[in-house]
C-alpha cells in the first residue's frame, strides 16, 4: 500500500490492544452522532469531542501506547471523523480470545484513515474511514487553576454511582468542596432534593486524595456531568481506578480518568505480567464541563 503513495504518510502506528482504545473512546461517546477531531503529533494522538461549547472531552493516546509510532508530518495534522463510526469500526477489529494487532495509517490516497489487522497472514480485516476537514477550530478549554489547587480523587465506580443517583432530582447539580470537615458534596435540586456527601475522613477508601483550602461551589448541568461517567465501559469501572476532579478558574470542572490499554491477561514475552502494569500503557481521558451561569454560584463563596 505504501508503494502507491508518493511520500511517507503523516503517521503509521501499530497497536496491540484495540480493546483498550475502544474502551477509552467509548467513554466519550455520549450521543449517537458525534463529530470528533483527531490531532496527531509526535507525542501521540488526541481525540476531541465537544458539545455546544459547554462540554469537551479529550482522549490522549500517547505514543508509548503504540508498539510502533512513526510520525512524519510537520505541524499537527487535524482531521474530523464520526466518532460512532470510528468506534464501531475499531470494535470490529477486536476478536475475542485473540490478540488484535492493528496498523493505523494516515492519510490514505484520498485523505482516509486506514486501518488493518496485522496479526495473521491468512485473514485480514481492513477499513478506510473517510475523514473531514474539521469545521471549527475547537475552542480550547483553557483550564487554569484558580489559586491553590482545588481537586479530589474518587474511586471511579463510586463517582459513577453518585452521578447516576443524582438523575432523579433534576437538571442542575451543585458541587461543593469544603475544607472543614473535608468533604465533597453533590446536591441535586429539582423534582426533589438529593445530597450525596463524600467525607474524606470517614471513608478513606472512597476519596483517595483531597485538596481544598477554601469553600467552593458551582452548578453544573446534570446531563453534562452525567456524560463524564455514564459511558465508561463496565469492564473499566470494575477495574475501579480513581477519577480526579478539579475545579479551575471560573468554575470549570475537569474530570480525568485513566484507562489501562495493556493487553489483558496475555502473557508478555519479556515481562512477568502477574504484578506488572506498565505506567505508560494508560490512556488519559479528560472532560471539561463549564458551570452554569448563575449569580449565586458563579463566584467562589468564601
Amino acid at each position: 500500500m505504501s508503494s502507491s503513495l508518493a511520500e511517507a504518510p503523516d503517521l503509521i502506528c501499530q497497536l496491540d490492544s484495540v480493546q483498550g482504545v475502544v474502551d477509552s473512546l467509548t467513554a466519550v461517546r455520549w450521543k449517537r452522532h458525534q463529530d470528533a477531531v483527531i490531532e496527531i503529533s509526535e507525542h501521540g494522538i488526541v481525540l476531541i469531542v465537544e458539545e455546544t461549547t459547554c462540554l469537551q472531552a479529550k482522549v490522549y493516546l500517547k505514543r508509548e501506547l503504540f508498539v510502533k509510532y512513526e510520525y512524519g508530518a510537520e505541524g499537527r495534522p487535524r482531521f474530523g471523523v464520526s466518532l460512532g463510526l470510528f468506534v464501531d469500526c475499531l470494535n470490529t477489529f477486536c476478536v475475542p480470545s485473540r490478540s488484535n494487532s492493528i496498523e493505523i495509517r494516515y492519510p490514505g490516497p484520498d485523505m482516509q484513515l486506514l486501518l488493518k489487522s496485522i496479526d495473521s497472514s491468512n485473514s485480514c480485516i481492513y477499513a478506510d474511514i473517510r475523514t473531514r476537514i474539521p469545521e471549527t477550530v475547537s475552542w480550547d478549554y483553557n483550564f487554569e487553576p484558580a489559586g491553590n489547587p482545588l481537586n479530589f480523587t474518587v474511586k471511579s465506580a463510586a463517582l459513577k454511582e453518585a452521578i447516576d443517583d443524582l438523575e432523579w432530582p433534576g437538571s442542575s447539580i451543585l458541587l461543593t468542596l469544603q475544607p472543614t470537615p473535608p468533604s465533597v458534596i453533590f446536591k441535586g435540586e429539582g423534582h426533589g432534593d438529593l445530597q450525596i456527601d463524600l467525607m474524606y475522613y470517614s471513608n478513606t477508601g472512597l476519596l483517595l486524595a483531597f485538596n481544598c483550602d477554601r469553600l467552593v461551589s458551582h452548578r453544573y448541568k446534570y446531563k453534562f456531568l452525567r456524560a463524564t461517567t455514564s459511558n465508561i465501559p463496565s469492564s473499566v469501572i470494575r477495574e475501579n481506578r480513581g477519577s480526579k476532579l478539579s475545579i479551575g478558574r471560573g468554575g470549570m470542572l475537569k474530570v480525568q480518568h485513566l484507562f489501562s490499554v495493556a493487553r489483558p491477561s496475555l502473557p508478555h514475552p519479556h515481562i512477568d505480567t502477574a504484578s506488572y502494569q506498565q505506567p505508560s500503557r494508560i490512556a488519559y481521558i479528560e472532560f471539561f464541563v463549564k458551570p452554569e451561569i448563575n449569580e449565586e454560584a458563579a463566584n467562589d463563596v468564601n
Binding site: S82, L85, C89, T92, S121, N122, S123, C124, I125, Y126, A127, D128, I129, R130
Partner: peptide
C-alpha cells in the same frame, strides 16, 4: 458506505 469501507479477507 460513503463514510467507510470495512472489509475482511480470509485466504488460503
Amino acid at each position: 458506505t460513503t463514510l467507510i469501507t470495512l472489509g475482511a479477507e480470509f485466504r488460503k
